[in-house]
């Protein structure tokens, strides 16, 4: 895997990380727009956050436990009702392991 370039964003590398196929015209457009957005983000580099804890949630709840009770799960047909391809109560996918 190649290392990401610092600037402008290596759009091929990041779109692969995000698993999103882009057309050539999208790549061209995003390269310039996202370059501008990253420049805008540079404001953050001036902030002094020494000794500041990060916030992941505004009001974090810890140790949230559920009752250990058996509940009615989805039936197979409910769980698969939106699957793009299914057969014998299973989702069909392309072959993953190479021969």
């Amino acid at each position: 895997m190649s290392e990401p370039e610092s600037s402008p964003m290596n759009i091929d590398y990041v779109s692969n990380l995000a698993r999103i196929e882009l057309s050539e015209s999208e790549k061209k457009k995003f390269r310039s727009q996202l370059g501008d957005v990253l420049k805008y983000f540079e404001k953050l580099q001036e902030v002094n956050v020494e000794g500041v804890d990060p916030t992941a949630h505004a009001f974090p709840c810890f140790n949230v436990w559920d009752q250990d009770q058996v509940k009615e799960p989805f039936r197979v047909d409910q769980a698969l009702q939106n699957a793009p391809q299914s057969r014998n109560d299973q989702i069909v996918v392309p072959k993953v392991v190479e021969e």
């Binding site: 953050l44 902030v47 956050v49 804890d53």
Partner: peptide, 12 residues
């Protein structure tokens, strides 16, 4: 540089 910095600034 981005995510962690942003989360800390969120605290401020």
């Amino acid at each position: 540089a981005y995510y962690l910095k942003a989360q800390k600034t969120r605290t401020l």
